[in-house]
Every structure is written in structure tokens, then in C-alpha cells.
Amino acid sequence: MKILVVGATGTLGRQIVRHALDEGYEVRCLVRSAQRAAFLREWSVELVRGNLCRPETLPAALDGVDAVIDAATARPTDRVEQVDWHGKVNLIQATHAAGIKRFIFFSILNAEKYPHVPLMQVKQCTEAFLAESGLDYTVFKPCGFLQGLIGQYAIPILEKQPIWVMGQAAPIAYMNTQDIARFAIKALTLPETVNRAFPLAGTRAWGAYEIIRLCERLTGQDAKISRISLGLLRGVRRLASFFQWGWNLADRLAFVEVVAGSQALDAPMDDVYATFGIDKQEITTLEEYLQEYFNRIMKKLKELNYDRDKAKKKKVPF
């Protein structure tokens, strides 16, 4: 089977590509930048230049493909509506026109509960558009990625920088993108996943302060915490929305309000595990992920200090 992965240079997309290759699939990737996709070429992946917002570039990428996995999302410099709505509509229509039936899409858990948040609204609208497209679709609804915790918590603690905590900091059931990729690739061979949506939640939901305490324990360092009130966040969003240059910022701040609230982003997973034949014990926990990361970083830091000490000893005094 030949699959087209869209968003392959992203945090999730690259894991989908890697897992698909490991499972023996032939993989093609739609990419905007050949430079950003250089590592994919090293993996012997076929690359096709294209852009979701330019529908004329899509037929070449879809030619000869059996299934499409869409893991793309707007970059910080993009308007959410451009990529996550118009771009996705272009891709779905082009997939249907190419005669390809299988389509896998990544939404966000509880998108239907936040119609006032642009990203959540377009995800929900895309789910509805996909359901009426005639394609054999599967929708996955992750809560959040473990990989995102590195920049948010791990690096600030190691660099003794403040960790910004917003509002009440809703507990979130983060999942490793490698595990998410397993679900996506397995869906290609499971008829019972066709025309269905599945939540993807980690082994438990974690609040911001729980993660901070875990990082402190694993590193032996105290965290510096800076708090931002939800009211201030909403005020900045409203101000930004008055100016065209601030629309993109306002859209993203609206999403931040979701994770800064009190409602947990979590979902029961027993039926999902049963459907996909995946054992919960095989899913990476947040503790395991951060422990492995900090062990690797601490080992590297010790090696760097050792190298510096050796270099100092070799210096000849004058």
C-alpha cells in the first residue's frame, strides 16, 4: 500500500512516516519546503512539492496513492482558517477526485465544545465536511503531545528560566506521538475503524503543577513559576483581534484559553485499545518520557563538563 502523509515535517507527521516505513508501507510526502524535509529524503521517502492552499499542486501528490494521512496544521505564521479549513477542504476534495477512498484526519478532543475558538471550530467543521465527503475516513482526537512538554517545562527548568502557567491549567492526558502514529498506521488495516472517530488520551491527565513537581524531582532543581491570569489573557486576545496584524495571535490565544481553563482534556480509552488491539501497558507514560529525556540530557551535560575539564588540564601555562 502506498500512503501520502501530509504534514510530514511536523512533530506528529514525522513519527507517522517513520512508523509507516517500519511497517513496510511505501510513503510519499507532500512538503512545502525541500530544505525542511531533507531528513525525509534521507529516509528514502518520495517527496512531492505542494501546498494545501494551492489546490492545483495536489493531484500530482495523490497520483497512485492508496490512502491519505493528514497530520498537517497551520504554522505560527499562518492563519488557522487558511490551512486548517480551506487547505483541508482542498485536500479532501482532491482525494475524492483522485478516486482514493481511505483518509485519516487528526482533530482535537472536545473540539465541538469550543465553537468560539477558531482552531476548534475549523477542526469540528472539517470533521463534518469529511463525514459528508464519501471517503472512508477515520478521525483521531488527541489531547496533547508529550513532545510539547520539553519546551514548556523541561528546558525552562534546566536553563533556570520561568515556567509560565496560565489560569487554572486544565489537566491534560498527553500522549507520545510515536504511540499516536501506531494508532494511525494500524487504522489502515482495520475495517472497524472506517467512518469512526476515536479519542487518543494518554495513561492519565496531568495538571501543570504536577508536571512541574515531577520535573523538579527528576532534575533535583527548583522551578521558577510565573502565573498569567485568564483575565489578562482574554484582554490581550481582544486587543489583538482589533488589528489585522493581530488576528493570527488572537486566534492562537483563544486556543490557549482552552488549556488554561479548568475542564480536563481526557477521555476513556478501553474501547479504543480493544478496537486497535493495542495494550495500554505499551503506551508511554509521562513519567517514562520525561525520565528518559532528563537522563539523556544529564548524561550529555556531564560529558560536556568532562570534556571541558580535560581541555583545561591540557592548557600549557605561560
Rank of each mutant, 00 (worst) to 15 (best):
V6T: 09
G7S: 08
G10R: 08
L12M: 01
L12W: 02
G13K: 00
L21W: 02
V27Q: 01
L30D: 00
F39N: 10
V45N: 02
E46F: 04
V48M: 10
R49V: 15
L52W: 04
C53R: 12
R54L: 14
L58T: 05
A60K: 13
A60Y: 02
D63C: 14
G64S: 11
D66W: 00
V68I: 11
V68E: 06
I69R: 00
A72C: 07
T73M: 01
R75V: 06
T77V: 11
E81C: 08
E81A: 08
W85P: 06
H86T: 14
G87K: 11
N90G: 06
K101V: 07
K101A: 10
I104T: 14
I104W: 00
F106I: 05
S107F: 09
I108K: 00
L109G: 03
E112H: 12
E112T: 15
M120G: 12
T126Q: 04
T126I: 12
F129Q: 06
L130M: 00
A131Q: 15
A131R: 10
E132H: 02
E132K: 12
L135E: 07
Y137W: 15
Y137A: 00
K141T: 05
P142C: 13
C143Q: 03
C143H: 02
Q147N: 12
G148A: 13
G148T: 14
Q152V: 11
L158R: 09
K160R: 10
Q161N: 06
I163C: 07
Q168H: 05
A170N: 15
P171Q: 07
A173S: 15
Y174H: 08
N176V: 04
T177G: 11
D179W: 03
A181R: 04
A184H: 05
L190T: 03
E192N: 03
V194G: 01
N195K: 14
A197P: 13
P199Y: 09
L200V: 11
R204I: 04
R204H: 13
A208I: 10
Y209D: 13
E210M: 01
I211D: 01
I211G: 04
I212Y: 03
E216K: 11
R217S: 10
R217V: 04
T219G: 14
G220S: 07
Q221H: 05
D222H: 12
D222W: 02
S229W: 05
G231Y: 10
L232T: 14
R234G: 10
G235Q: 04
G235W: 09
V236K: 05
R237Y: 08
R238C: 03
A240D: 09
Q244A: 15
W245I: 15
R252A: 05
A254L: 08
F255T: 06
F255G: 06
V259A: 00
V259T: 11
A260C: 10
S262E: 14
Q263A: 10
D266R: 09
D266G: 06
A267G: 10
P268M: 11
F276A: 13
Q281Y: 09
L286T: 09
E288G: 14
Y289Q: 01
Y289P: 09
L290S: 01
Q291A: 15
E292W: 14
E292P: 11
R296G: 10
M298W: 04
K302V: 12
L304N: 11
R308H: 09
R308F: 08
K313S: 11
V316K: 13
P317R: 13
F318T: 07
